[in-house]
Simulated scan of single mutants.
Amino acid sequence: MEQEFGRFLKELREQRGLTINQLASAAGISGSQISRIENGLRGIPKPATLRKIAEATGCSYEELMERAGYLQDQGAAEAEIVPEWATNKDKRDFRKMLEDDGELMFDGIPLDREDRQRIKDVLTGLFWEAKQMNKRKKPKQD
């Protein structure tokens, strides 16, 4: 997966006419980190890093998340994530709640757009890391 994503990132960067250093500067990450990603020497970047790369390249964040293996077919994901007993109220998508324009607070402090984006990035990263870890666990054989 690291090799595939690295090739994709290199092609994307070259399509945009960017050098490694230009992409690094625009994304606010090191050139060596981009080089290691492109060469498959570094694991898949975290969602927060992917967001920076998306903004720097003009590529959609969702496409980078999908190419990195964080996102899967929504139908399959829905079936895995939502338990049968969940009501419609239980199924409210937390990501959508963070994206809505309504007022949100944490510990009595209102969250601005930047706060919401940071929370969304952190939760996305944690969620997909947990999903990947669960995939790696092999069921015990009797």
Rank of each mutant, 00 (worst) to 15 (best):
F106Q: 05
A68R: 02
L126N: 15
L123I: 02
D107C: 05
R92K: 10
A54M: 13
A76F: 03
L104E: 05
K120Q: 06
K46E: 13
K91E: 09
W128V: 13
E2V: 08
D93P: 02
E66N: 04
E78Q: 06
K10E: 08
L104W: 07
M105E: 05
E103G: 15
D107V: 02
E14K: 14
F127P: 13
G75W: 00
I37Y: 06
A77W: 14
E38Q: 07
L50E: 12
F106M: 08
D115L: 12
A76H: 02
G17R: 01
N21E: 01
G125Q: 09
D115H: 07
V82G: 11
L98H: 09
L71Y: 06
M97Y: 05
M133R: 15
L104V: 06
S35T: 02
E4A: 04
G43H: 02
D101H: 14
G108H: 11
M1R: 13
E78N: 12
A56V: 01
P139S: 12
M65W: 04
E78F: 14
I119C: 03
F8S: 03
S60A: 09
N88A: 15
E129R: 11
A27G: 01
Q132Y: 10
Q74V: 12
L64Y: 03
T19G: 02
N88L: 15
P45F: 00
P83R: 13
E66P: 02
I37P: 05
W128F: 12
M1Y: 06
G6H: 02
S60N: 12
R92E: 13
E63S: 15
Q117D: 15
R7P: 04
I34L: 01
R36Y: 07
E99T: 03
E2R: 08
R7N: 15
E80M: 01
S30Q: 10
L50K: 11
A26N: 14
D73A: 12
D93Q: 07
A79F: 13
L18S: 00
K138M: 10
M133N: 05
L123R: 06
S32F: 06
E84T: 13
R7F: 10
F106N: 07
Q72F: 04
K137Y: 03
L12S: 04
I20S: 03
R118H: 07
M1I: 14
R92G: 09
P139R: 11
K140V: 12
E103W: 09
D90I: 00
K91I: 04
E78H: 12
A130L: 14
E66D: 09
R13D: 00
N39S: 15
K131W: 12
L104N: 10
L98A: 07
S35R: 00
L71E: 05
L111F: 03
K120T: 12
L111M: 14
R16S: 02
R51F: 11
